[in-house]
């Protein structure tokens, strides 16, 4: 009753508006961004190792080296950010009860991403990919979506977990 009266008053007087939902609860979460960022890190490590094979680096090689390292840092940050957002915003009590391993898995991803940023080491980036793929498996399982693994059709041609949509 009171709400109806206020609604009618509002249509005439136009009360001022405030927002209580300043964050958009968009519910759009997908681990693919993190997976692609890891693939990029692996690709960058491959390119860096290509430079390491050269006996002497030209000016362009040195510029390329700086660029590759910088991009590896950026994509490492992206992996961390994407995983943290899904873990922090999407995973709630029902998902945590189904997959209590998620906290350890996310922590492992953070540590491995740091290691992959600190070193030019393909083994570390591959171990990171395995963790992020597992994260994707868990994520899709909480949504009841089946997954399959396939080799990415572009370099560095590594296996990714994809949802069967």
């Amino acid at each position: 009753m009171l709400f109806k009266i206020l609604s009618k008053l509002d249509s005439r007087c136009h009360f001022s508006r405030v927002s209580a939902h300043c964050d958009i609860p968009c519910k759009i979460y997908d681990p693919i961004s993190a997976q692609l960022a890891v693939l990029t890190m692996i690709r960058l490590v491959d390119l860096l190792n290509g430079l390491a094979d050269k006996s002497e680096l030209s000016l362009n090689d040195k510029a390329q080296f700086n660029r590759l390292i910088n991009e590896k840092e950026i994509h490492g940050q992206k992996v961390k950010e994407e995983i943290r957002i899904i873990w922090g915003d999407y995973f709630k009590q029902p998902q945590l009860e189904l997959f209590p391993e998620i906290h350890d898995l996310v922590h492992s991803i953070m540590l491995k991403t740091s290691a992959a940023k600190q070193h030019v080491d393909k083994a570390v980036t591959l171990a990171l990919l395995a963790d992020v793929n597992r994260f994707a498996e868990v994520f899709w399982a909480t949504k009841g979506v089946e997954v399959y693994s396939a080799v990415s059709p572009y370099p560095p041609s590594q296996t990714l977990i994809y949802p069967k949509l």
Binding site: S16, R17, V18, S19, A20, C22
Partner: peptide, 10 residues
């Protein structure tokens, strides 16, 4: 009156 988010209730 938030400088970035405008008029909000929290």
């Amino acid at each position: 009156a938030h400088p970035y988010y405008g008029a909000i209730v929290k």
